[in-house]
Design a protein around this nucleic acid. Sequence first.
DNA 1: TTAAGGCATGTAATCGTTTACAAATGATTT
DNA 2: AAATCATTTGTAAACGATTACATGCCTTAA
Lengths: 344, 344
Amino acid sequence: MRSEAPTIQDVARAAGVSTATVSRALSAPNRVSERTRHIVLEAVAETGYVANEMARNLRQQKSNSICVIAPDLSNPFFSFIISGIEQISGPMGYGVFVTESGLSQNDKTRIVNLMAAARVDGFIVLDGMLDHSLLKARGRSGQRAPIIAACEWKAGSITPSVIVDNVGGAVEAVKHFAALGHTNIGHITGPDGNILTETRIQGFKKGIEASGLEYRDEFILEGGFSLESGYEAAEKWLRMADRPTAMFCASDREAFGFISRLSKDGVRVPHDVSVIGFDDIEVSGYFVPALTTISQPRVEIGRVAATKLFDLIKNDGESNVVEQTSQLDVTLVVRESTAPPPSS
Amino acid sequence: MRSEAPTIQDVARAAGVSTATVSRALSAPNRVSERTRHIVLEAVAETGYVANEMARNLRQQKSNSICVIAPDLSNPFFSFIISGIEQISGPMGYGVFVTESGLSQNDKTRIVNLMAAARVDGFIVLDGMLDHSLLKARGRSGQRAPIIAACEWKAGSITPSVIVDNVGGAVEAVKHFAALGHTNIGHITGPDGNILTETRIQGFKKGIEASGLEYRDEFILEGGFSLESGYEAAEKWLRMADRPTAMFCASDREAFGFISRLSKDGVRVPHDVSVIGFDDIEVSGYFVPALTTISQPRVEIGRVAATKLFDLIKNDGESNVVEQTSQLDVTLVVRESTAPPPSS
DNA sequence: TTAAGGCATGTAATCGTTTACAAATGATTT
DNA sequence: AAATCATTTGTAAACGATTACATGCCTTAA
């Protein structure tokens, strides 16, 4: 019963070679003769040796892990992205740290320290509201750990990022309504100050114009992506004298909240009002009615972000291989929450 | 423009003391005189020193991070638990790794290596289907890294775990149906072989008995927790000659799939059939109809699991402070998917 | 035949901390 | 006044890998 874990020394002793040779046999097999490689591999198997990551990390000055900063880990939207990130990172031998970027000062200094303490080799930020200053903090050795922004990002940022075609998605949505014959189209926005909110509003307006319709400011209802905010928007909608017959929601959850509230007053979707969401979360296809929505490739966002980050890490933060920002396409998926307007 | 990050040497030099003193001033302030502590702290501020985690980890033989193994990171159910774990871990200075325990052999060896390579100090396993052998693998220094199982776990396991009262929840659900006057109550199960599936079936039977009803095997429909499986179960239900007037679903998503399919055939919930779910995921309160369900404290599960794990880590895996397994309570939340049976 | 160069290997420095041990100082007890 | 002890600090040895450099050997070319 061995009480201590085998080190590279033990392997070297068992194989009758130096530790340098063992290290080379494992990490640069073509730098040793075939014979010794064989001997070493046998000694490794015999001793059950696995290299100690911590020692390796210290020597190589890299931690083989990255960190994902999400505003809220419990949000299913982010969890799909994280899944995508892990799918790329795991096989590459990188660990994925997750942290919540809540609002407490505590959280923030923790993130800064993460960087300064050389604990992670790079970041993927899912929180567009995160302090810019926070991310400009330099890490050890003067260099900043590479950062990729995914999904949300404040305008004017120079951080490489992966986004989806929010404008195009919103345009698609409006055009779909218009094609069905709607002329009074409204929009429930995302939270104030969010870049996604802005781009989707922008796309909404563009779609209205492209369809030759009149943009009406009073048809814009403020939301916040959440179920609750959609619910509240519905109450405003119910009080409107002149109601839009179609509502484009900035998120699926908003759409659910909206429909949920409406159904309590007996307003039927799509019979009385048509609804389109944004995201295509899992439950959307099973809602009653099944939700017509703009589908985002969430897992893919994570995969692309991770791929970009590793490229940056490999090239010491100076990649010209990857373009600054990748834009992924969204698609309109038509289900049952949209129909021609009620004939008045 | 400093190109290198300050090390403890730099601080020592600036403060005119030894590195040992700097280290002590930072990690054991009461071991140095107040005067030197002051000087050191000033030097730290001046140089912008932050201790290198990798060096610290190597020396102390601990990585200050834990690993969460989930079957599927994109599943919202797990993401709430992970959020809870992070809420505890972050402030304690621990990083949280997440990994997917897919089915490939690759994934598995990766997890074993994670342990052997001393990369993490402990595990929280959310996957009850994970190979037992995998987790028995010893880490460095002969000791196994502590493991906490959360939610799902194979019967007979000796691993400390945190679970919820699945049996009690199912009993509650059935009793609620019975109280409304239902006598023909059915159940859509979880996936085969899953411990949660079994305990909920067990609770279902217990509830039937406790309500003085007759247990009917043909009222048990096989499901798999997913939306799709609920959808398919509905098709079976529709084909039944003698239909239950109330269905207890092993998950909320199953319930959504079930209701969704039914609504396509004009079967109305709760008018024609009552439905209860299990989990109380976010959207449940906004479904149409709002879903009556058994609410699980998902974030709390994560927090408790993390707390237990850190206790184990601190006490070198030999804790007698925490009991082996903690059981958390669930609560029935009544919404709009349940009503008295249709008067025939 | 000799110089040059490539290959396989070993020696030892290095990464940046923490900490066991030793030493020095000052306070307290006998 | 000597012995004891606590307090503060420094010296140097870990932790366990990787890797720069040195060495010796063998091949090849002039």
